[in-house]
């Protein structure tokens, strides 16, 4: 053990900054979860807080607003899983099938760009186009047609969120898939062409099996974040549709903790979120193993 440490000392040295980051800002900060069991308030300091036990969790689990936020989060997460998750994959396949590297590079650069635009701008652009006073409705009204209510319409809110994330991040999401696609052995394609396989069969029997481990890996990791659906994106738009449609777990925690000052409650909700994520990753990984996949870890 010690000898291995000495032998790999350079590698450990490289690891150190990353390790320090996780120790201080993740593990260290995670100890702050303790405030969920106290009556801590920000101005009072940790020293003055007194132990209240798990009562905060009882209060949280009995709060319909909390469950409402959880439900909204799950709904959005599910919509994202079904409608957003496959888009980068499809886009990557499309890009991969391009033969001209110039065109490919150009398209890649264009689809990456929206990722670097902040949510404030993305949301503003969507509002300028789809809002009640926006471009689309202005055009419809000018031409004597019925206007459509999208921004501020609670029923359209969740699909709108998914549409925004598809526009913003599907290009960025192709990176890992493209890397996986470039790893597929070209001789496999050549062999299947010789055997008379068309494009669809080549995709089904060569491409997909080759990148399946990556897809499963990303899917499992996504499940771990099932209760995180884009805090900033939702916070910016929640007020327009109200909490009934727009409150997610993260905004709920923000309003309880930062705005409302109920830090123990916010910490309890954070613990709940972390536990759900951990359990899901663990379970999904197990299932992946059963299905003969590598999963995230062994």
């Amino acid at each position: 053990m010690w000898r291995r440490l000495v032998r790999d000392r350079l590698l450990w040295l490289f690891l150190l900054p990353g390790l320090a980051y996780f120790l201080i800002f993740h593990l260290g900060a995670a100890l702050g979860m303790g405030i969920a069991f106290t009556d801590y308030w920000p101005g009072g300091g940790i020293g003055e807080a007194s132990w209240t036990g798990p009562g905060t969790f009882g209060r949280m689990f009995g709060d319909p607003d909390f469950w409402h936020a959880v439900l909204n989060t799950l709904e959005i997460s599910l919509l994202q899983l079904v409608f957003f998750f496959p888009v980068p994959l499809a886009l990557a396949l499309l890009l991969h099938s391009l033969t001209s590297t110039t065109v490919k590079r150009f398209v890649q650069n264009v689809v990456y760009l929206p990722h670097f635009i902040s949510w404030v701008i993305v949301v503003a652009v969507f509002q300028q186009i789809l809002g009640g006073a926006g471009v689309l409705n202005g055009f419809l009204a000018d031409n004597g047609m019925h206007t459509i209510d999208i921004i501020g319409n609670p029923d359209a809110f969740k699909p709108l969120l998914v549409a925004q994330i598809i526009w913003k991040d599907s290009g960025w999401g192709t990176i890992i898939f493209l890397a996986a696609l470039s790893q597929v052995d070209d001789t496999l394609y050549e062999a299947s062409v010789v055997d008379g396989a068309g494009p669809w069969r080549r995709f089904w029997h060569v491409t997909l099996p080759s990148i399946r481990p990556v897809i499963v890996l990303l899917l499992v990791m996504r499940l771990g974040e099932i209760l995180s659906v884009g805090f900033e994106q939702v916070l910016l738009q929640r007020d327009a549709v109200g909490p009934a449609a727009g409150e997610i777990l993260d905004t709920f925690v923000y309003y309880k903790g930062i705005v409302g000052g109920d830090f123990p409650y916010a910490a309890a909700a954070g613990i709940f979120k972390g536990l759900v994520g951990a359990v899901l990753v663990y379970a999904a990984n197990k299932i992946a193993h059963r299905l003969g996949e590598q999963g995230v870890y062994r």
């Binding site: 800002f25 995670a30 303790g34 405030i35 009556d39 020293g47 003055e48 007194s50 132990w51």
Partner: peptide, 26 residues
């Protein structure tokens, strides 16, 4: 930032030590 992290790290240990102080102090 480091101070904030340190503060968070201290969060668990101290309250339990103070356990019984009720609201009376505040």
């Amino acid at each position: 930032l480091l101070r904030a992290a340190g503060l968070a790290a201290g969060a668990v240990a101290i309250p339990s030590a103070l356990g019984a102080c009720g609201d009376g102090a505040k």
